[in-house]
Amino acid sequence: MDILNALAVLFNFLVIPAMAYGSQLALGALGVTLVYGVLRFSNFAHGELMAFGTMTTILVMWMLQSVGITGGFLPTALIAMPVGILVAVLLALGTDRLVYKFYRKQKSPPVIFLIGSLAVMFFYNGLIRFVIGPEDQNVADGVRFIFTAGDFKRWSGLDEGIAFRTTQGISILVAILCVAALFWFLNKTKTGKSMRAYSDNENLALLSGVNPERVVVIAWVLAASLATIAGTMYGMDKTFKPFIYLQLLLPIFASAIVGGLGSPIGAVVGGFIIAFSEIAVTFAYKKVIGYLTPGDWVPDGLVQLLSTDYKFAVSFAILVVVLLVRPTGIFKGQTI
């Protein structure tokens, strides 16, 4: 029995990666849920918006690197990110102007918006591949680890190490800051409250003098900013590849729906639920069981519930259970 080493393995391969991934999903799901709350449709172009913001960040990062500016021990992408956010916001607002505004005026049903977002996704996708190509790009530079497995082993004297990558730390920290700032905005400022009011009851908000176009603009600004941040964090932590962001759409939607579409707190909780389940189900428990069982009894296989390739199935299974049991999500959805 060696509980400490077992915990170390769990932390290293499950808890820390899931925290980082959960942070990224939460940021992505917040964007989806904000757009849903205000514009009342599921934005299928959100994954591409993430990719676009990340791409701009990478381009600016390259420019900075080429003139010798780096983030020192931090990734240069962090310095480039504000520009990426700005450009993504402009793209989102431009798209709204040219595409969605028309349907808002027509009072089109949500499904038309959704199909519009499919077309927008097509366009963004081509744009991204046109500018940066379909290949992998490395986003992370600077110091790779906050502490390495070796550091941890020396410090703790355990056999198993825990490594904490800089990008994981940044993902978690940035997510905490963003979520805190967003909740402060939504709950404490007049503009934020007017957004929640609009999402809750559009007609009554209009009666109270809320300007709907302004709320929509703010929703896009927030969604595009969060999308860029989420995309950059994911790109730094894993890798930037245009088509990966299309695949992220499923876990992001699952997060938003599990938490309750339209509920920001739900999006955050949903993001972590999806991340932890995805990694826990595809995690190989062999080592952990080895440490927890007496003697040298180690199971033959990897003791993995599902192969890593089926991680989508986890998001999907959770989604299905939520749809069957509680379609409004954990935190009752439909409003911000």
């Binding site: 299928f44 959704l114 939607f253 699952a254 999907f316 989604l319 299905v320």
Partner: peptide, 15 residues
């Protein structure tokens, strides 16, 4: 809601 069918089909196709 119609969105849910869209998302569910997206999911099943990936699986």
């Amino acid at each position: 809601r119609s969105d849910y069918l869209a998302i569910a089909t997206l999911g099943i196709s990936e699986i």
